[in-house]
Amino acid sequence: MISNEEFKHLAELSKLEFSDVERDKFIKDFNHILDFASQIINAKVEEKSFIRSIPLEDLREDIVKQGLTQAEVVSNAPKQKKGCYVVPRIME
């Protein structure tokens, strides 16, 4: 079960804001989900991990190719200038 404090911390990590009403509903749903997810905590299982290995010969040749241009990369930014993202001043 998560507390209001923990929820606040998670929201900060997630960069999300919740009103008080939303928060109460979210905490209720969230605890319901955690309860469901917690089934695995006590499962007896051998510790293992599966990591797919990539054979070295499968890597492509290291040849420089034209990718997206700087203008293309920032083309979807809400604010941009000279190929850079624009954000409000950070230093006062």
């Binding site: 990590l13 997810a37 695995i40």
Partner: peptide
């Protein structure tokens, strides 16, 4: 939003082993 929050929860220190690592072990 729920899933972002849940993802951050299972990846945060204190819960990482109990949830995320355990889930990865079960997956294997």
């Amino acid at each position: 939003k729920r899933r972002i929050m849940l993802g951050n929860y299972v990846l945060s220190s204190g819960y990482f082993d109990a949830y995320y690592n355990k889930a990865r072990s079960l997956q294997a």
